Simulated assay, not measured.
Amino acid sequence: MSAFMHRFPLMIIGGSVVIGIALLAILAPWIAPYDPNNIDVSVILMPPSWQHWCGTDTLGRDIFSRMLYGARVSLAVGFVAVGISLILGLILGAVAGFFGGRIDAMLMRMTDMVLCFPTFFIILAVIAFLDPSIWNIMIVIGLTSWMGIARLVRAEFLSLAQREFVLSAQSLGVSPIRLMWRYLLPNAMGPVLVSAILGIAGAVLLESGLSFLGLGVQPPDASWGNILTEGKDNIQIAWWLSAFPGMAILITVLGYNLLGEGLRDYFDPKLNQ
């Protein structure tokens, strides 16, 4: 175990941060000292204290409790959005890489066309025509972030297509569908997993940005982004409204990035020789 930690410290550190934040989010109803939407006018804008560890907001709501519930929103958006993009990317990339030819050219040109548009502005445009709800955010982020996974899966399939085990399976008459999902895809999942982990960090940032702009999770529901919005309006008199959710976003994104980099090292064959 110590040798593993010495070889892959980023994965251990990042994984510990990710697991810790996930546990806090899951256990939020039992950990949170207050109801996140409970209004108490007697403690409006109270600074951090033993009573309210992260202070209170302009309605007297406990920031620590709201951040715990906000973690549930951010992680849910990250996992669901990346799940949608992963499914789309795997299917399109696998089909393009396996069949090649005109199918590959058509799918990759479509991918290139989607990549030409700034993702954040596409999301803003779509959200503007939809109700700003958590489910709409998940779906829109997932539908606009599959391109990198598709290109990665295609490249892996092209690399694996000439391997001996693939040629042997083809000579035995294995069907194309079974060949793709039984033989090629499991061998391509290492880089795809790394990309998915890094994608969760990006989705958390996107959700926070949308909520900060008022296009994401709507009050009174808690989100790190909408807590930051309130902090922006009171930055000179209530620094804790910006500092604590900002630190939560930073630590979460950093944890997923470290985990992704650690997994990349783990799947690197040169490091495992």
Rank of each mutant, 00 (worst) to 15 (best):
G209L: 05
G209V: 10
G209C: 07
G209K: 04
G209T: 08
L210K: 02
L210S: 09
S211P: 09
S211M: 07
S211N: 07
S211K: 02
S211Y: 02
F212A: 10
F212P: 08
F212L: 15
F212E: 07
F212N: 06
F212M: 10
L213V: 01
L213Q: 01
L213H: 01
G214I: 14
G214Q: 11
G214F: 11
G214N: 11
G214C: 12
G214D: 12
L215G: 02
L215C: 03
L215N: 05
L215E: 02
L215V: 07
G216Y: 00
G216W: 00
G216D: 06
G216E: 06
G216P: 05
G216L: 04
G216N: 07
V217D: 13
V217I: 15
V217A: 14
Q218C: 05
Q218I: 01
Q218G: 04
Q218L: 03
Q218K: 00
Q218A: 04
Q218D: 07
P219R: 03
P219M: 04
P219H: 00
P219T: 13
P219G: 05
P219W: 00
P219E: 09
P219N: 02
P220T: 13
P220F: 04
P220V: 12
P220C: 12
P220I: 12
P220R: 02
P220H: 08
D221P: 00
D221M: 11
D221W: 00
A222M: 05
A222V: 04
A222H: 01
S223H: 01
S223E: 04
W224T: 08
W224I: 08
G225D: 07
G225Q: 03
G225K: 02
G225H: 03
G225T: 10
G225M: 06
N226H: 06
N226K: 03
N226D: 06
N226R: 02
I227W: 01
I227E: 12
I227C: 10
I227V: 11
I227R: 05
I227M: 15
I227D: 10
L228E: 03
L228K: 01
L228W: 00
L228Y: 01
T229I: 00
T229R: 06
E230W: 01
E230K: 07
E230P: 03
G231W: 00
G231L: 07
G231Y: 01
G231E: 08
G231C: 05
K232F: 14
K232D: 10
K232T: 09
K232W: 12
D233G: 13
N234T: 08
N234Y: 15
N234E: 10
N234V: 09
I235H: 05
I235L: 15
I235G: 04
I235Q: 14
I235S: 14
I235F: 15
Q236G: 11
Q236V: 12
Q236N: 13
Q236M: 13
Q236E: 14
Q236C: 01
Q236H: 13
I237V: 15
I237G: 07
I237Q: 15
A238F: 06
A238T: 09
A238R: 04
A238C: 10
A238Q: 09
W239G: 14
W239M: 10
W239L: 11
W239R: 12
W239D: 10
W240N: 12
W240D: 11
W240G: 10
W240M: 09
W240H: 15
